[in-house]
C-alpha cells in the first residue's frame, strides 16, 4: 500500500487538475456562446446567398458558357481535400472525428486511382494526417493568430482555393468540417465546394440582371464559396467549443471520482497506521 505522503500528494495533484478542467469548461462555455452568436449572425447572409445562387445556377447549369466553377472542369481526376480542424487540443474527439471522415474519403479516392491533394486549416488536423498523407500536403492555413474569426479569413482561404483552381491544380474540392448540432453532438461533414453544386429547382422569379447574368455569376461564385467556407469555419468554431466543453465536463467529473477513491484509500491507510500503533503500544504495555 502506498504510504500516506504519496497519497496526499496524489490527491493534491488531482485536485489541481480538476480546478484546471473546471476552468477550461467554463471558458469554453463562454466562448461557445459567442461562437453560436457569430454563427447565428452569419445565417441570414448565407441563406440569402443560397437563394440567389440557386436561382442563378439552376438557370445556367446547362448552358455551355457556364463558368468552370459551376460546370466543373469536365474531369474528376484530381481532388483537393480541405480539412478544417482546430488549433488547440483537449476537445475530445472533435479533431479525430473530422480527420477520420477525411481519411476514409481519401482512402476511397486513392483506391479509385484519383490524385489527392490536401489543404489543411488548423494545426491539429495537419498533425494527425501528416504521418500517412504527408506527401499529399499542398498548403496549410495557420489560424493560431486568429482571435476572432472574420469573413476576411474565410475569404483568404477561398481565394487560396480559387487560385489553385484557376491554375488547374485540381478538379474537385471538398471541405471537411464539423457541423454544430448541439453541445453534445457535432457531426463531421463533407461538403463539395468546387464545382459549386447547382440547385435543382428555382423559385420561378425572373430577375433583371445588372450587369449580365454571366457577369453576376462570375462575381458571385467566388463570394458564394467564401460564404460556404465562412459558414463552415463558424460551425467548426462552435463545434470545437462544444466538444471541449463536454470533454472538460467529463474530465472534471472523472477527477472528482478519482479524488473520492483516493480519499477513501488515504483514510483507510491512516486508520491502519493508527491501529498498528495502538496495537504496538498495547502489546508493549501488556508485556510489562
Amino acid at each position: 500500500m502506498a504510504n500516506l505522503k504519496d497519497l496526499k500528494n496524489r490527491i493534491a495533484s488531482v485536485k489541481s487538475t480538476r480546478k484546471i478542467t473546471k476552468a477550461m469548461q467554463m471558458v469554453s462555455a463562454a466562448k461557445l456562446r459567442r461562437a453560436q452568436e457569430a454563427a447565428e449572425a452569419a445565417r441570414p447572409y448565407a441563406e440569402r446567398m443560397e437563394d440567389v445562387m440557386s436561382n442563378l445556377t439552376a438557370a445556367n447549369k446547362g448552358s455551355p458558357s457556364a463558368p468552370k466553377l459551376l460546370a466543373g472542369t469536365g474531369s474528376d481526376q484530381v481532388h483537393l481535400v480541405v480539412v478544417a480542424t482546430s488549433e488547440r487540443g483537449l476537445c475530445g474527439g472533435f479533431n479525430t472525428n473530422i480527420v477520420k471522415l477525411a481519411r476514409t474519403e481519401i482512402e476511397k479516392l486513392i483506391a479509385a486511382g484519383k490524385t489527392v491533394k490536401i489543404l489543411t486549416v488548423g494545426k491539429k488536423g495537419r498533425e494527425q494526417l501528416r504521418r500517412e498523407y504527408g506527401q499529399y500536403f499542398v498548403d496549410h492555413v495557420d489560424m493560431s493568430e486568429v482571435k476572432k474569426l472574420g469573413f476576411e479569413h474565410a475569404k483568404g482561404i477561398a481565394q487560396n482555393i480559387l487560385a489553385r483552381f484557376e491554375a488547374g491544380e485540381f478538379d474537385v474540392a471538398t471541405l471537411y468540417y464539423s457541423a454544430f448540432k448541439s453541445v453534445i453532438s457535432q457531426v463531421p461533414t463533407a461538403q463539395q465546394i468546387v464545382p459549386v453544386e447547382a440547385a435543382e429547382e428555382t423559385s420561378g422569379a425572373s430577375y433583371d440582371y445588372e450587369p449580365s447574368e454571366e457577369g453576376i455569376l462570375t462575381d458571385l461564385l467566388p463570394r458564394a464559396i467564401s460564404t460556404q467556407v465562412f459558414k463552415a469555419l463558424l460551425e467548426n468554431g462552435a463545434s470545437e467549443q462544444g466538444a471541449r466543453m463536454s470533454a472538460m465536463d467529463n474530465a472534471t467529473r472523472n477527477a472528482g471520482e478519482m479524488i473520492d477513491k483516493l480519499t477513501v484509500t488515504f483514510n483507510r491507510s491512516r486508520q491502519a497506521a493508527i491501529t498498528n500503533e495502538l496495537i504496538e503500544i498495547i502489546s508493549g504495555a501488556e508485556a510489562l
Binding site: V52, L56, A205, S206, Y207, D208, Y209, E210, P211, G215, I216, D219, L220
Partner: peptide
C-alpha cells in the same frame, strides 16, 4: 446608382 422603391421590377445587381 439606382433607387429601389416598392414594386420595383425584380433585379439583381452587383
Amino acid at each position: 446608382d439606382f433607387t429601389a422603391m416598392a414594386n420595383h421590377t425584380p433585379n439583381v445587381s452587383t
